[in-house]
């Protein structure tokens, strides 16, 4: 039983990181019907921005929660900048082109970031410094909660609340939801579509940037291909929850994080990655709209 609780805690922490990345996938899909394959790499950029910021500006800093929050904010800005550049120069010129063009462009951008990253940062893994004070909280019965798990929960939770507020309680959120219903109609009623899409990219990318730093804190080995697997898994989480649906992405991510940890804990870690793809296949076969998605005939 104790083991089960420990697995659950670990799974929730992993799921929270997936959730932050999955939100970016789902938001961009919501407004543009585009699967932004470069999103996982924006997550990687966040990690590296955090790493280089620490190296250059606070090399001997004492680990503290404040440091972590500063690094997260810087990484969010860095990732958002990359997101904006990608949107402006890669996706916007193709807005009226057939959807397959922009999809292929997304894959191209993803490869550019991965291999450009290897060129700039080097292909060898680098180690993310300790920026968070490390402490283990004994919950009794040999169950431990680590300080970085707590931070991951908290930061993810706060960011998701902010996002929920933005999407459902603000003028911008209303415009975004309008565009997700129909881009043309939203344009006709006077919504500045380009601006809303840009802001969507900013929000999605900065969430990925925050996730990048949290990932670096939890698993301090980062390299330019780091975004590949978590990116794919976050995509699967978004599909599982119903792509385009904000709440669905979070639920999908948490479910994926938990099931991966249970599989590694009770069956074998060899099947951990296979499981994610099995889930993807099952969802596409049995419930293509995802858990919370609405049925809509869609050609991708």
């Amino acid at each position: 039983m104790n083991e089960f609780i420990q697995h659950t805690i670990n799974g929730l922490a992993l799921g929270s990181i997936y959730a932050l990345v999955a939100l970016g996938y789902t938001m961009v899909f919501g407004v543009l019907q585009l699967i932004n394959f470069a999103h996982g790499d924006i997550f990687m950029v966040g990690s590296f921005v955090g790493l280089y910021f620490i190296r250059w500006f606070m090399p001997n800093v004492e680990p503290s929660l404040l440091t972590t929050i500063i690094v997260i904010l810087v990484a969010m800005v860095g990732s958002a900048t990359v997101g904006v550049i990608i949107e402006k120069f890669a996706y916007r010129p193709l807005r009226k082109a057939p959807r397959i063009n922009i999809l292929i462009t997304a894959i191209g951008v993803s490869l550019l970031l991965e291999y450009g990253g290897q060129l700039i940062f080097g292909a060898s893994p680098q180690f993310f410094p300790d920026i968070l004070p490390r402490k283990q909280i004994d919950l009794g019965g040999a169950i431990y909660l680590d300080s970085n798990q707590v931070t991951i929960f908290l930061v993810s939770f706060v960011l998701m609340l902010v996002l929920q507020f933005l999407v459902f309680k603000t003028q911008f959120g209303r415009a975004m939801r309008a565009i997700s219903h129909s881009l043309e109609t939203a344009n006709l009623i006077g919504i500045n579509v380009n601006k809303v899409i840009l802001i969507t990219f900013i929000i999605g990318s900065s969430l990925a940037g925050a996730a990048g730093v949290l990932y670096g804190v939890a698993y301090p080995k980062i390299d330019p291909l780091l975004g590949l697997l978590p990116g794919l898994k976050a995509f699967i989480a978004a599909v599982l929850g119903g792509i385009g649906n904000v709440t669905g992405a979070v639920i999908g991510a948490i479910l994926l994080g938990l099931s991966e940890t249970y599989v590694a804990g009770y069956i074998s870690s060899t099947y951990r990655d296979a499981l994610a793809f099995l889930i993807l296949i099952l969802v596409l076969l049995l419930r293509p709209a995802g858990l919370l998605g609405t049925k809509k005939i869609e050609k991708v």
């Binding site: 083991e3 420990q6 697995h7 670990n10 992993l14 040999a142 249970y262 590694a264 804990g265 870690s269």
Partner: peptide, 20 residues
Amino acid sequence: DEKYVSGDVDFKAQLTNLKS
């Protein structure tokens, strides 16, 4: 006796099992 695969970054599940 637990296993991982080179390239993995998360070993918590295996460690939890070993600890018990």
